[in-house]
Write a protein that binds this DNA or RNA. Structure first.
Lengths: 243, 243
DNA sequence: CGATAAGTTGATTCGCATCAACTATTGTGG
DNA sequence: CCACAATAGTTGATGCGAATCAACTTATCG
């Protein structure tokens, strides 16, 4: 199933910078395959890089590192509009798998065509590059959080991040968003145990900051959640600029 | 002090891919300023991105996140040959400062000129991109380590990484390398307390894996250090390929 | 409506922070 | 060059945060 369009891509890049008409045309000429995955499916396996890069259309995709210890660790979460394995365009081996978290629709873009864009459109290339750099910023924010925050704060921080990312794509309604991750998944995200996560969540609830039922998170008091989780949205680079 | 050469840059990129003569020429035409810093100096401040990117020539540079909590966290260490803030070329705000760890020599490269390279040399651009992607891989490896390893293992893992990175630039002699970081610095790296780090180091010593005196680390048993620290060098992408 | 999975609660154990000496090393000025 | 100061490393005691194990309750789904 190959459709001749990638509106989504123009939209995503257009949020961060102005696109020239010919750039939009080039993007729309990319042939994409759209596939659906269900919970737990491997979208891209670790190892030698694939021939396609993928873009999340709906649902959530996780980057899962299989550590030597046998435990899986989630190193990134991706929401609609995120280009997940764009870096595979330049790297030889993927250090992680991409896994569907819940139902997930994904557009695959041929790497040859992307590479051609990097040959012909320097400005677009910089924007692609930027997307991977924002991922790196998020990694660093997580690292800083891991080194300085305790469970409760860490979870608050993460929820602020998700809230912000969902808000920019219009997925937050009345302070609530659909939550593809459950409490038990926090284990693979941060290495915290299930019961401990649960107690942390209860603490956040008790403070009147959030509610978190199975598949729905409601933020009651964003300002204080940010303070509690020591969250500063700067790192998400949600600004438009000439790049 | 502006010298008209950047041998180092050709060397660094040339390790990961074959460079065309005209690419080498373009790199060597970059004007660089070389500056020296001493321990604790700020090489690049956080905030609005600077007009230059920098390349470590000698010594060590750290990326330091100033978290909301007031505590500093090191999110990356950089050794000679590393392009530290290349990502500033595309981003608007730097999320961290770059700080000298011990004496440190750095080459500054003008961003305008780098940007021009991204306009004219797609292949070089992909290689620059790759450098930032390797940084991201290291971030992810650290995240996985943070979620799964305990102090002792974590330090072993980090020493394996440093060993490997130093080895590729010929800084390891008889299993020893000069260590710009002291035990007390591990606190800012991982969030571990000084005494706990110390006990971990002693454990590694007792196991006959390493020695770590003030400014020198000696790896006695690399194989077992890797096993102990669950280290797999794959993520450092020390391979040459067409990119 | 029973089966399964997610969430919740409690008890126990252990890793790591913290605080507080103390020792060894490096650096400094007289 | 030595004496002293400052810093890094080491050791011990104590308390807390988080893992672990086990039971139990609540949701979800066939």
């Amino acid at each position: 199933m190959t459709t001749k369009t990638s509106e989504l891509l123009s939209l995503v890049l257009g949020r961060r910078d102005r696109l020239e008409p010919e750039e939009r045309t080039a993007l729309s000429r990319l042939s994409v395959r759209t596939l659906k995955f269900s919970h737990g499916d491997t979208i891209i396996p670790a190892g030698p890089t694939a021939a396609e890069s993928c873009l999340v259309v709906s649902g959530m995709a996780l980057r899962v590192q299989s550590t030597w210890a046998g435990r899986d660790v989630v190193s990134a979460v991706h929401v609609p509009g995120d280009f997940v394995d764009l870096h595979a365009l330049v790297l030889e081996r993927l250090d992680h798998s991409v896994i569907a978290q819940g139902d997930c629709k994904v557009q695959f873009v041929d790497q040859q065509q992307l590479r051609k864009i990097t040959n012909d459109f320097p400005h677009l290339t910089r924007l692609f590059w930027m997307l991977t750099l924002i991922d790196a910023k998020i990694h660093r924010a997580w690292l800083a959080a891991a080194a300085t925050l305790r469970t409760n704060e860490r979870i608050a921080h993460f929820l602020c991040e998700l809230y912000t990312r969902y808000a920019t794509i219009g997925f937050v309604k009345n302070g609530s968003f659909e939550m593809p991750l459950q409490q038990k998944d926090m284990e693979r995200l941060f290495g915290f145990s299930r019961s401990h996560v649960n107690r942390a969540v209860q603490e956040l609830r008790a403070r009147g900051l959030i509610d978190w039922s199975r598949d729905q998170v409601t933020v009651h008091d964003l300002d204080n959640l940010k303070i509690y989780g020591k969250f500063d949205a700067d790192y998400l680079e949600i600004v438009s600029a000439r790049r």
